[in-house]
Design a protein around this nucleic acid. Structure first.
Lengths: 103, 103
DNA sequence: TTTTGTAGTCATATTTTTCTGACTTATTGC
DNA sequence: GCAATAAGTCAGAAAAATATGACTACAAAA
């Protein structure tokens, strides 16, 4: 059995794991949209042009696995699913902003 | 003609470009080693196990292009080449460290 | 002068990531 | 009941990233 911690410890560079959390063609964009408001599968598919079901599906699952997003089933009116940014996700935002300012 | 700035502005998410600077299998490790001391092609090839000439060559060129490393020809004794971390590179280090602490 | 070390390039494989299109299950609106 | 929307899965195709092995050019050492 391989835990998340072991995976990170196997990395030669500690930041590598962190960078990986957001590596992938669509993850960062999904993440940014989720910062503004909870996101939904079907609207992401429409909003993010050039994206596709499969890739978004994988990206959302992985963002969930690393606990940057949380999947929530809304059992109201038109019953749907939302992905919310977690506290861990929120904690990354200021660091990412710093990165932006560096360029 | 496409400038670096245009490329960045085409990104939907501003941090995307930044994350890309260090995306790739070996870049972050090269970058970390270059923080400790200037690095050389042949020693990287020995130090970074699992790596190969081609990939290191490409990674070094790209790190140079985005101005995180600078290539310097040492015309002394055994005439060789060193890659030095630039001020821009150095400025990223504390942000990367913050990222590490986030996990 | 033949070998060794450094710093690569080039063409070609192999691997990994991403995309496409068909299909599924459940709910809701008409 | 019938079509539409939401949220996917799956197999296979295409594209992008990495790796391999052969080769080059130059300098220095034996």
């Amino acid at each position: 059995m391989t835990t998340k911690k072991e995976l990170v410890e196997n990395e030669t560079c500690p930041a590598q794991g962190l960078l990986k959390l957001l590596s992938g063609k669509w993850k960062l964009e999904i993440f940014r949209l989720a910062f503004d408001a909870p996101v939904r599968f079907s609207s992401l598919l429409r909003q993010i042009e050039g994206s596709n079901k499969q890739s978004l599906s994988v990206a959302l699952r992985e963002l969930e696995e690393v606990e940057l997003l949380e999947k929530i089933v809304i059992t109201a009116k038109p019953l749907h699913i939302e992905y919310h940014m977690t506290p861990k996700g929120k904690s990354m935002v200021p660091v990412l902003k710093q990165l932006e300012n560096l360029l």
